[in-house]
Design a binder for these strands. Structure first.
Lengths: 145, 145
DNA sequence: TCTTGTTAGTTACAAAACAGACTATTATCA
DNA sequence: TGATAATAGTCTGTTTTGTAACTAACAAGA
C-alpha cells in the first residue's frame, strides 16, 4: 500500500488556488450582482467590450477562454439589460459585432473603478515585488497545458 | 473605444486567480471524474476523511468552507459509491460520524498519489522559494474578509 | 455546380449549484 | 419546567452550467 504522509491537502496548489479565487472574488461579486444584477460571465464580457472596444463573440471566446455557450448567454442577458447592442457584420454575416451602449459604458466605468479599488486593497496585503511575482506566477499557471 | 486608463482586466487579481484555479484544476479533475466518477466536492470530502480520519459533516464544513448542502450531497454520493459510511453519534444524535470504507481508503490513497504527482509538476514551473511564497500569498488571499 | 469541411453562434436537455424552508435534536435560561 | 434559540443535516424549487446537436454562412476543391 502506497503511503505518502507528506501530502497535505492544505498545500495542494489547485485547492489553494480555488480557495483564494473564491474568497477574493466575493466582495467584487457582491457589487456587480447587487448593483447591476450581473453574473460572472456578464461582467467579463462587459469588461472585454469596455477595454477592447467592439468585438465579436468569438473574439471574446478566444481572449477570455470562456466557452462560447457561456458567452452567448451572457451577451443575451446584457442585451436584455440594454448594456450591449449587436449588429450583424457585413463582411461575414455569421458574425455579430458587439458594442456597449452608453448605459453599458457607464456600468463598465463604474465597475472598473470598483474593481481597481478592490484590487488595490488586495495588493495592499503584500509588497509591490510580491504582487508582481504573484501575477507572473498566476499567468503561468493559467496557461494551457 | 479603447480607453486610456490604468486598470487592466488581465491584471485584475480575482480574474487571474480564477483563471489559474480553473486551468490548474483541469488535469486533476479528469482523473477523479473519469476514474472514480466523482465531483469536486466529493473528492474534497474524501480527502478530508482520508487526511483527518472520521469527521462529522459540520466539521468538514468548518474546515473546508464548503456549504453544508454541498457536503450533504457529496456524502450521499460517496455513500452510494460505498466509499463512506455514516453512523449516528451516541453523544449527539443530530450528528453523523463519517468514515472511509476500505474501498474509499483505496480511492483516497490512489488519488492522493495522483494529486501529489500533479502538484510536483505545477511546482516544477517555479523555484522552491517562489512556490513557498505563492502558497503563503494564496493562504492570505483565502482568509475571510 | 456540387460536395465536403469549417466557423459563428444558438438551442435543448441533462447535470449541478444555490438558496431557503424544513425536521429532528440539543442547549439555554427565565 | 416550558419557551425559545441554536445546531445538524436534508429536501425542494429555481438558476446556472455542461455537452452535444443544431442552423446558417462561408470556403475550397473537383
Amino acid at each position: 500500500m502506497v503511503e505518502n504522509d507528506d501530502f497535505d491537502l492544505q498545500n495542494f496548489l489547485p485547492y489553494l488556488l480555488n480557495r483564494a479565487a473564491e474568497e477574493s472574488s466575493l466582495a467584487f461579486q457582491q457589487v456587480y450582482k447587487n448593483k447591476y444584477g450581473m453574473l460572472r460571465n456578464e461582467w467579463r464580457v462587459l469588461f472585454h467590450l469596455g477595454a477592447f472596444g467592439e468585438m465579436t463573440a468569438s473574439s471574446i471566446v478566444a481572449r477570455a477562454r470562456i466557452h462560447k455557450t457561456k458567452i452567448s448567454r451572457a451577451v443575451q442577458k446584457l442585451v436584455e439589460k440594454r448594456f450591449v447592442t449587436r449588429e450583424r457584420s457585413e463582411d461575414d454575416r455569421r458574425q455579430e459585432i458587439l458594442r456597449l451602449t452608453p448605459l453599458g459604458l457607464a456600468a463598465y466605468r463604474d465597475l472598473r473603478e470598483v474593481a481597481a479599488a478592490y484590487d488595490r486593497t488586495l495588493e495592499a496585503k503584500f509588497t509591490k515585488e510580491e504582487v508582481a511575482l504573484l501575477r507572473g506566477m498566476l499567468r503561468r499557471l493559467a496557461e494551457r497545458g
